[in-house]
Amino acid sequence: LPQTPVRTAMNTIQQLVMILNSASDKPSDNLISYFNNCTVNPTHDIVERVENLGRIFKEKFAEAVGQRCAEIGSQRYRLGVRLYYRVMESILKSEEKRLSIHNFSKLLNNNTFHASLLACALEVVVATYGTSTNASQGDAMNMETNLSFPWIINILDLKAFDLYKVIESFIKAEPSLTREMIKHLECCEHQIMESLAWQSDSPLFELIKQSKERDGQPDEPEPPSY
């Protein structure tokens, strides 16, 4: 059968649902074991964060697409959380192998890491369904146009540069992502690199400053030829 935009979009949804159907809404036993290995157990904060961000997501989703679609927001969030836990486990497995350590207390107690990882998972879910609406009903009928990137970082009050930091690891950790979704995440990366990371409140500027201080360079503007 010829690959049409609608068929591509439906395949992307099918793939996502297939991956997440068997996934859990809660941390797996493997994840719990990673949490238990931490100097400071992050379980309570992780579960509480998922609940709190869920309330915000569902409220903002309903505001963006209409109150009658509030239940859809809950469904999207549930899928996002499943993907978040699944990718977190995969990331920890590969970090454990790479670093030969079992205690990820610092990473697992880092609020920015979790919020960014969850935002990335939600972006994949929202974009997957958004593409299908685009492809099947046309832009004029698209309820979810309002949810397109960078909507997710705005509603969760995240810095674009922090989301950028998880995208590559997310792609590596989830081999079942479709080609379309990888391309979408790459587009988000480009948008961050080209504009969003350069907004005045971006953590990128502090990193540049620290990097210059480490190298012993004065913080002077670069010559115009650069």
Binding site: I91, S94, E95, R98, L99, I101, F104, K106, L107, N110, T112, F113, K165, V166, E168, S169, I171, K172, P175, R179, I182, K183, E186
Partner: peptide, 21 residues
């Protein structure tokens, strides 16, 4: 992932990006 440009350097992972040991 064949078309995706990976930016992390060899031996680098997410722990370094979030300032973890």
């Amino acid at each position: 992932t064949q078309d995706y440009h990976f930016g992390l350097e060899e031996g680098e992972g997410i722990s370094e990006l979030f300032d973890c040991d």
